[in-house]
């Protein structure tokens, strides 16, 4: 199955054919070759139950289902595009950062409270990401959007990574996350270093970090 091929750092080309369908962010198509159909999709491949779950969770970026025969070019808002290949593992990503992914991937919504209990809920609230995140699992390609490109940082049990919640893009693998605060007296009086909250990621996996603190 040919994967997504980047055209430049902000655009990519994806083949579409029988058995090679895509879900993409609605309106992110730039150009296409061949006979390609775009249909608005509510479920995004997650089934009716999943769709209701998504709507309730507020993780409902509008998607479209891309079918037909040809190839499609995607891009959005001049943002950097990164292709992540999944080989049976799970990617955790915010719904509004998803540009396009293989329809063969299973998408779902995960309640952040499942990971880390109450602190997961607080994490979601503090970082403005809501309490839910989108999961994609299976074999296939995913393209995520970022402001200013991403770097991949490997996480190992001996080497936990701390990330600014606003610069966090996605992560994969067996990772537990935890909100770390280093609030001090200085933060209280408005003279903080601007780094009072950090996301601690530990376990085995990769975290994707963008070069900016801007949300999409």
């Amino acid at each position: 199955m040919p994967a997504f091929s980047p055209i430049n750092s902000k655009m990519l080309q994806a083949p579409v054919g029988p058995g090679q369908e895509l879900y993409s962010k609605r309106g992110a198509m730039l150009a296409y070759v061949g006979r390609v159909r775009f249909e608005p999709s509510v479920t995004g491949g997650a089934g009716i139950g999943g769709a209701i779950g998504r709507a309730m969770a507020g993780e409902s970026a509008p998607l479209m289902h891309v079918t037909g025969q040809g190839s499609v070019m995607f891009g959005h808002g001049g943002l950097y595009v990164n292709v992540i290949e999944l080989q049976g593992d799970t990617l955790y990503v915010e719904a509004d950062r998803l540009l396009v992914y293989d329809a063969s991937l299973q998408s779902g919504t995960m309640f952040l409270g499942e990971q880390g209990g109450l602190s997961g809920v607080i994490r979601g609230q503090m970082t403005g990401q809501g309490l839910f995140t989108t999961t994609l699992s299976g074999h296939g390609s995913v393209a995520v959007l970022s402001h200013g490109g991403v770097i991949e940082l490997p996480i190992s049990p001996q080497r936990p990574i701390y990330v600014d919640p606003q610069a966090y893009v996605a992560h994969r693998g067996q990772v537990t996350n935890r909100l770390k605060t280093s609030m001090g007296l200085r933060d209280m009086v408005g003279r903080g270093s601007g780094e009072a909250f950090q996301l601690e990621l530990s376990g085995h996996g990769i975290v994707y970090v963008q070069a900016s603190e801007k949300k999409i």
């Binding site: 936990p160 280093s182 903080g192 270093s193 601007g194 975290v207 970090v209 900016s212």
Partner: peptide, 11 residues
């Protein structure tokens, strides 16, 4: 945006 190891941030 990210770090590993032990870091201290002080304004």
């Amino acid at each position: 945006v990210a770090y590993d190891g032990q870091m201290n941030f002080k304004r």
